[in-house]
Structures are given as structure tokens and as C-alpha cells.
């Protein structure tokens, strides 16, 4: 997978988080911002985000992959999706 498509993944996730989960289009999110410690995503949003990733990228995320290490930042999620689809 190329760099270009990697940033496409991040852009699409960002769009989903801002418009669907947080419903606040004025919000800015950086790629390495901690999504969990900052309180941006609560546990229900994490589940919705995982559901979105599963349908958007046609992968199924097993429970043991639903861990902090894979979801802390947009970069982490991007890496996880690349590992699963690449």
C-alpha cells in the first residue's frame, strides 16, 4: 500500500470521527493526537469506530485486536488497517 492511500485512510477516519461520532465539523484532529487520554472518544464511540472500520475496509476486527495499542491515535489505527489489508 502506498503512502498516498495511507493518508487517505487517515483522512477518511478523521472525517468519520468529526462528522459522525463527534458531530462537530469545526473540530480539528491531528494524526498523532491521543484519542483516548484526551477523552475525545468514549467507549461507545470506540465501538462505533470499529464497526465503521470493519465495513469501510472490509475487515473483521477480532476482540483480541480491540486493544489500546491499535486505537490510541489515527496513525495507530492506520498501521493496524494496513497490517490487516496489506
Amino acid at each position: 500500500m502506498t503512502e498516498n492511500s495511507a493518508s487517505k485512510i487517515i483522512a477518511s477516519l478523521k472525517q468519520f470521527i468529526i462528522t459522525e461520532l463527534l458531530n462537530d465539523e469545526s473540530m480539528s484532529l491531528s494524526d498523532d493526537q491521543d484519542l483516548l487520554l484526551s477523552g475525545l472518544l468514549d467507549s461507545l464511540n470506540v465501538i462505533r469506530l470499529a464497526g465503521h472500520i470493519e465495513s469501510e475496509f472490509s475487515i473483521s476486527i477480532p476482540p483480541e485486536d480491540m486493544v489500546v495499542e491499535n486505537f490510541s491515535t489515527l496513525v495507530d489505527i492506520d498501521t493496524y488497517i494496513k497490517n490487516r489489508t496489506g
Binding site: D34, L36, L37, G39, L41, D42, S43, V46, P63, E64, D65, M66, V67, V68, E69, F71, S72
Partner: peptide, 13 residues
Amino acid sequence: PEAITKFPASWSS
């Protein structure tokens, strides 16, 4: 840690 509370598999681990 708060991040772990959001991930059931991290919490059990």
C-alpha cells in the same frame, strides 16, 4: 488507565 477502560480486551488483559 482511562484508555484501558475503553477496550474490553485490554481491560481483561
